[in-house]
Amino acid sequence: MREIRRGPVVGTILVATSGCSRASMPMLNPEGYVGRSEFELLVITTAIMALVLVPVIIGTLWIAWRYRSSAGRADYDPDFTDSKLISGVTIFVPLITIAALGTMTWIYTHRLDPYRPLGTTERPYEIQAVSLDYKWLFIYPEAGIATVNQLVAPSGQPVTIRLTSDPMMTSIFIPGLISQIYAMPGMETRANFLAENPEQRDGANAMYSGPGFENQRFVTHILAPEDFAAWTKGAAEGKSLEGAEAAKVEERLDMAYYKKLVVRSDGDPITYFKSVSPDLFQDIVRLYMPQYHMSSLPTGAEYMGAN
């Protein structure tokens, strides 16, 4: 019984050490700087908490049993309501634990700020993501192409995703690679990552935005830089990613086509657009917030300097 009650703690440690399959526990098999740091934080904090929890749980049950009235202990003392030693421990144990965790929170929250571009002077590669009912649109402004329900990004290079949504409030989530941040209509939020190795991960909208939201999923492919360059070139000619599901190919994504795309639908196939009108992302945000102006992306050093 006691083991089951400590389930989350024990379970997390077990899973963390035994190495579950990547498919079933992506967060515990992270990739890249963000995912790894967050995993590390999860393990440290769980361990600190277990240090306090386990004695409290055992202590509670032990004291209750030891002082049960049927035991008839002689040290019964109805006036025992204050002890400097006990009160000191009971205030300092929580205080020290929280001080330690609070310090970690401050450091890691700044280190893992989703707006912070990774790397220092290197300009991040920009991808724009638009969350639609119930599909994801990804625009690659440098290559002038767009994809639906498939995210392709280079490894070994900082990447910034600009996010917006139309029309619901949603939350992008690629467990183990990037953690959640909301995508909202009329607003731009950002997510940053730096993947070291080519790999494949599932991404999702983690936030309920209507029946069917759980189908708003996409596959993320991290490619080596040269493969990524080849992919963008190929996609502009309508060539699907090798080893992935064949994409449906469309010519140009402009506002007129976007109006068709935005209509609520479910289970859309992976779609490639050979070209995209240049300011489409900005125009989508401006549908809700006419005064919006898209600023240029900072490097890591610039962002840290500005903050």
Binding site: M27, E38, L41, L42, T45, T46, V52, I98, T105, Y108
Partner: peptide
């Protein structure tokens, strides 16, 4: 304890909405 974990902002980024 899991509440304190949620208060650690980057952990919450992962466990929020799940």
């Amino acid at each position: 304890a899991t509440g304190v974990m949620h208060a650690i902002v980057p952990v919450d980024y992962n466990t929020h909405n799940t």
